[in-house]
Amino acid sequence: MIRYVLRRIICAVPVFFIIITAVFFMVRFVPGGPFDRERQLSPETLAALNAYYGLDDSLPVQYLRFLKNLSHGDLGPSYKYQNRSVSELVREKAKVSLKLGGAALAIALVAGLACGAVSAMGRGRLSSALDAASLAGICLPAFVVGPVLIWIFSLKLGWFNAMGWRETSDIVLPSITLALFYAAWISKLFKDSEARELAKDYSRTARAKGESAMRVAAEASKSALSPVVSYLAPAAAGMLTGSFVVESIFNIPGLGKFFISSALDSDYTMIMGCVMVYAAFIICFNILADIALALLNPRVAKELGVRK
């Protein structure tokens, strides 16, 4: 197990490297630069700024400097938010996004799995009602759900703040808004595969032998969880690194907004910061997902080389 994780981590290094290299060069081909404004700067000022940030060097030189600074953990200053360094900004924002995303992840998991399990085991109305509910979760985009939740619980009932990230209760509405979509996916995926496993011979035999419904379901879910686990890896990375829409609706100082705004502002250093965080999450969660698959099915463990 430990050897497997180590191997994956070693494998992650070149992956990470390829990602940052690709993005480093990609962003330079986006039209415009970090100092483009509607009110255009004079050529002299522009030249001074490029010189100041070392953008007048050739790309390979800039790349090497980026790698050198990176080795000291220095991502440089943000081009837009001038007196902050990217590492500082990313660290601050990631804290917020982790909290919000963690809460959303928990809600999505609990609600999604519960909803999926009940609708897979149950029959008739409850099952189809839950099914329809999860479909609604997918159809209703966050930019509709968020404002409606605020309108009801903040403006009408006055239970929560309409925006901001100061009080503990500020986490409730945004995390629900963020979780809804993912919960719906988890519920649908789980319901579908759990129902299929329950219809299989082994489940029927077990039930015929007099095993309790719960135990049969638990046994079946070992296989049924596989698509959920695979789905969870990118979903968790997405939730934990924040969402542009949710952060904008609730005015939350998370990382999600920066993913879009730094790209549109050509804030090169900030883009690299965001991408590195996201890449790290994706890589980690995909490792975790593979380990989870291995735990659910010992033979998969063998297949993946987790256990010899």
Binding site: P147, W151, S154, N161, M163, I249, F250, N251
Partner: peptide, 12 residues
């Protein structure tokens, strides 16, 4: 930056 958010915050 979201004007609707701002209005909701004002109303709340």
């Amino acid at each position: 930056d979201n004007m609707n958010t701002e209005e909701r915050a004002f109303r709340a």
